[in-house]
Nucleic acid binder design. Sequence first.
DNA 1: AGTTATACATATGTACGACATATGTATGGC
DNA 2: GCCATACATATGTCGTACATATGTATAACT
Lengths: 239, 239
Amino acid sequence: MQTSLEKLRPVEHLSQVDKIEMSLQEYLRTENFQPGDSLPKEMELAEAMGVSRTAIREALSRFRTLGIIETRKNRGMVIASPDVFNNMERVLNPQLLDDETMNEIFEMRLVIEVGLGDVLFLRKHNADFSILEKIIEKEEKATKKIDIVKYDIEFHSMLYKLSGNKTIMRFQKMLRPVFDHVYAKLSENTEAFAGNIPEDISPVTHSDLLNTLKHGTPEQFRNQMRTHLMVYFKKLSTE
Amino acid sequence: MQTSLEKLRPVEHLSQVDKIEMSLQEYLRTENFQPGDSLPKEMELAEAMGVSRTAIREALSRFRTLGIIETRKNRGMVIASPDVFNNMERVLNPQLLDDETMNEIFEMRLVIEVGLGDVLFLRKHNADFSILEKIIEKEEKATKKIDIVKYDIEFHSMLYKLSGNKTIMRFQKMLRPVFDHVYAKLSENTEAFAGNIPEDISPVTHSDLLNTLKHGTPEQFRNQMRTHLMVYFKKLSTE
DNA sequence: AGTTATACATATGTACGACATATGTATGGC
DNA sequence: GCCATACATATGTCGTACATATGTATAACT
C-alpha cells in the first residue's frame, strides 16, 4: 500500500517550477533543438507560459546545472551538448552513497576491467607498453604500503587510458573515489588479506597481465584479469 | 596558447552562484553532512555568505536538481542520498550526444556484457533460466524484424537483471536509448549486415549463451558473449 | 485527560521591480 | 577605413512582499 502511494506522490505535489521544467523539456524535444541553437529570451518564455521570470530562471538554472544549456550575458541562451558524467561527478563528491551502492559500483569496475580485454587488443600500440613497464618497475621497488597502492591504482588507470575509449576513461576517473573507498575498506580488513594489499596475494601479477597484453590473446587477458581480481570477487560475494 | 587560456577561463568568469555552489559543497563536505541531516535556513545561509537569498536559492536549486538535497515547506532542507544515475538520465533524454560519445557508450555496453559472466555465475539461480528460455522461444517464433529486435533487447536486458547488481542494471536501463540508437543505425547498414539483425548472423545464439550459463563456466560464457557480440566490435573498430 | 479544532508562527515557493554587468551594435571623430 | 565612445539589450543579482504549506501551541469539546 505504501509503495503504491509513493508511486503517485511525485506527480501530485508538483511544484510550479517542476511543471515549467517539464514543459521546457517537452518544448526542446518537439522543436528539435540542436546544440548551438539559441533559446528565446527569459522574458519571452515567462510571458508565453504565464509565469514570473523568477520561476523560469529557476527551471533554466536546472538545465544549466545539468549542462543542457549555456548562457552568456547579451547573447542569450544556447543549447549545449552536456557532458554525461559531469553531473554524476558532483553527486559522488559528497560521498553520500550507501555501502550497497558502493559495492555495486566496485563490482562494476571488476566487470569492466575483465571485459576490457578486447578493446585493449583492438587499440594496443607498442609504444604504450613502456608506460606500463615503468609503473610495474616502480611498483616492484616500492616498499611502503601506500606507494604500492598508488602504483597499483596507476597501473589499472593506465589500462583504462589505453582502451582508447574516452567515455570509459571518464567513467573510471569519475568513480575512482568510490573504487578507492571500497578498496581501502577491503585492504583494512586484515582478516581476509593478513595486512597485505589484496592484489599482492593474487596469483596473477601486473607483469603477467602486461606480458599477455604483449604476446597473448584477448581471451587469455580476460582470464588473467579475472584471476587477478579474484580476491575482490570472493570478498564481495560473501557479503 | 589557446588551450592554456581555455584552461583557466572557467575560474575567471565564475558566476557568483558558481562560487556559492562550491562554497556550499565544501561546507557539506567539511561538516560531514549525512543523508537525513537538515541544513540551515536559506536566510541564515544568505547572511552567513553575505549574498541575497535569490542567489542562495539558485545554488540550492542546483543541489535539488542533482538530488543532493530535498526541501519541504516548513521543515527546511535535508540532505538526501542522490540517485547517481538519475541526472544522467535527464541529460540523455534530449539526445544531444554526439556520435563519438554514442559509439563509446555502446562499446562500453559490449565490454560490460562480456565481463558480466562472472557475476552471472556468482548469482545464477535455476529459477531464472525459464525466463530466458521463454524469451528465446518468442524470439525464434518471431518473423517480423521489429519483434526480433524487441526480444533480442529483452534477452540482453534480462541478463543485466540476473546479474543481481542493481547499479549495473540501472546503468543499462539508463543507457538503453543510446544502445538502441546505435543498434538501429548499425542494423540499417545493409552493406554490413545484408538487412539482417546483427546478432542474427552471429555464430553464437542466445540459446548457446543460455546453455553455457546453465552448464558451462564463466570463461566459456565470456568467450561466447564475445563471439556473440563480435559483429559490433568489428563494425565499431573500422570507424 | 485525551482528542479534535482553530489560530498562529515559520520556512520555503512565487512574484515583481530595480539596478548591475557584460556583450553587441550604432554613432561619431580622426 | 579605423578606433573610441555611447547606447541598447539580455542575463545576473538584489530586496521586498506575499502565497502556501507545515509544525506548534492554544482552546474547546466529549
